[in-house]
Design a protein around this nucleic acid. Structure first.
Lengths: 362, 362
DNA sequence: CCTGCTTTTTGAACCGGTTCATTTTGTCAT
DNA sequence: ATGACAAAATGAACCGGTTCAAAAAGCAGG
């Protein structure tokens, strides 16, 4: 059974292909009688309507946005990450308004079937391109593209949050409350989700060890710490696995936090689930948050952050807004742009003034 | 600047279009010298490689799976729903393995630009098609399609969980622990996310009021309740809003639960976030779970369910597996199939034997 | 040098519409 | 009936590849 094509309908109705096309796309152009004839032919032949492939080929528009997710851990892992989710939600909200599809493409750069190379989309949003490798096939196609949370040079549009300012915001919040002994919990994004329990010294902040956002956030924290007259040498950085699902592992890693920095009164967590993990670890150890320990975290405005015990104070990264902004830039296809979106401090109940030092044996 | 096409490259290299095509797709077929000539022409002209549009048009394969999400609340809301997420993760995992894109399409049936009508995909997975309206444009294209959690008749492939068995599983768990006074919290999926505080009587279980899955789960619960020699008339059903984001509202609605069914010792929640909400409401009221109240919920294997206080006992719906199964059926494109996946009981710490009745004033 | 076989290269058909400048048809006023 | 003009219908170009049967080229053995 051969596919019925527009040409077939045209012949059956005794009209031209163009007329059939119009019958579907601009029916008001046809005289009612003729339209009826075309419609009858459509019914008789069981024509399913214009094939999107043809439309796409000639119009050149696919009505789809490609989103490249960080490939290392697989797409299904990425979906579990609150930040990715909020980002996608933002991108999806704009796509939905415009009536276009949102096509999720693996960033894993396979051979020649690399998704990005052959995806039928009008442009790309590239999330967390750890290595430029996954960038190349996308950019080489010459479609509009926006890189998110990553610096790909001045030639490529980018959207990010003001992570450095966010770092300042978070650290300053603790410092203004009066905390002087801080500690940082940083995510570790490795190829395979392993846990590294080593603490690192402050000099490595800007090194390649950390990805773009983490590094920027650390810089902001350093800004605030220095402004308060303190040294980053006294702020231990604990690394824990950065994937949501590895929360349990993270908890294991967090033991280190309390061992290495037992005197810390304020913890800054560089991603939301780490914050939640620290709360949990503290609860497990009977440490009262915020009375005995303040915890502030970076967050994405996910529900869990408000439902934790106690609700988590966060520097909220505008993940949703990043999704919308990146999508808009791609869809509008203007000149290269670089956008940095502001953070917002949401003070909830996991931060408070530090406990007064215990009185010397009175 | 006109786009460079394969024809241009062919002319520049003095070969045929077919040869250029081969140079990209089956380079081993070309003699090295000729291949070099083609490659030079490619470089000279700045040809970006075969345009996926052409390939797709002729091969007929788009290498993309369309996923139609329930449109009522918008895609970004759907993404916040743990069950949708797990489903998507499952679908994405298979898509990733096969190297194809996962295209998210709004189910909102817009005019003629209805996403499903023009999406460049090889098939559809349709999630929670509340009204057949969103089904029609998809099916009419004649592409393989699978409906999930919904009965669309024997002509359309479907994947669902054994919700009725799941209902039995959940209810039996409480009954076997010795609970005799049960109550049910059911989600309410309305077009606009409103909260309805009315409780409904058991006769409405199978009515149109509930969507497919909810209705099946209720039937299963009824099975177990009857098998235990009890009557559904004594099991109040409280409806609370079914969208994740409306958790706060749900909490408001949950007041009704404790007012209407103060004597209940076992609660069955028909979706995961309702279970979490009940735990929270109970905590707020100082009710000890599970000592004073057992809570079992339907769940999807999301992290939150294990991290709640106390960890939630759930009848786990195989959301992830549904995603994979539905995707496989679409991609393999065989005959119509109807799949029902089993539930799993995950007993955690929110269920226990009921407290012995208080001794009469001793 | 010719035959028969394998390896390279190619011509032509095919995939399914959209669009716009033109032609054809229709309408109205004179 | 006729010229001017608007509305309706159309022809042809275009979008960018893939593929396969068949032609051309290369090669070994006789």
């Amino acid at each position: 059974m051969k596919t019925v094509t527009m040409q077939d309908v045209a012949e059956a109705a005794g009209v031209s292909k163009a007329t059939v096309s119009n019958a579907f796309n601009r029916p008001e152009l046809l005289m009612p009688a003729l339209r009826a004839r075309v419609e009858k032919a459509v019914r008789d032949l069981g024509y399913r309507g214009p094939d999107p492939r043809g439309r796409m080929l000639s119009s050149g528009r696919m009505n789809a946005l490609g989103v490249v997710l960080p490939g290392a851990a697989g797409i299904s892992n990425a979906l579990e990450n609150a930040s990715v989710r909020r980002f996608l939600a933002g991108a999806a909200s704009l796509c939905e308004e415009r009536g276009i599809a949102l096509s999720i493409i693996s960033g894993a750069d396979g051979s020649r079937t690399c998704g990005a190379r052959s995806a039928l989309v009008d442009g790309f949003v590239i999330l967390g391109a750890e290595q430029a490798g996954s960038l190349l096939p996308v950019l080489s196609r010459g479609l509009p593209a926006v890189v998110v949370d990553h610096d790909a040079g001045p030639e490529v549009s980018s959207v990010r949050a003001e992570d450095r300012a966010g770092g300042r915001l978070a650290a300053r919040h603790l410092l203004e409350l009066g905390h002087r002994r801080l500690a940082i919990v940083a995510p570790l994004y490795d190829d395979r989700p392993s846990v590294r329990h080593d603490s690192v010294c402050a000099e490595r902040i800007l090194g390649e060890r950390f990805r773009y956002t983490t590094s920027a956030r650390l810089s902001g924290i350093a800004d605030a710490v220095h402004a308060a007259g303190l040294s980053m040498d006294d702020v231990p950085i604990i690394e824990a696995s950065g994937f949501t699902r590895e929360q349990a592992l993270a908890r294991g890693g967090l033991a280190l936090l309390f061992d290495r920095a037992p005197a810390a009164t304020g913890i800054i967590c560089l991603s939301g689930h780490l914050g939640l993990a620290v709360l949990e670890e503290a609860r497990g150890r009977g440490i009262d948050v915020p009375a005995a320990l303040s915890v502030i975290s970076f967050g994405v405005g996910a529900e869990e952050e408000e439902r934790s015990g106690p609700p988590l104070s966060v520097a909220r990264t505008p993940a949703f807004e990043k999704g919308r902004a990146a999508t808009r830039i791609v869809l509008e296809g203007g000149p290269v742009r670089h956008l940095a979106l502001p953070f917002e401090l949401a003070v909830r109940r996991s931060t408070a003034r530090p406990a007064p030092p215990p009185l010397p044996a009175a």
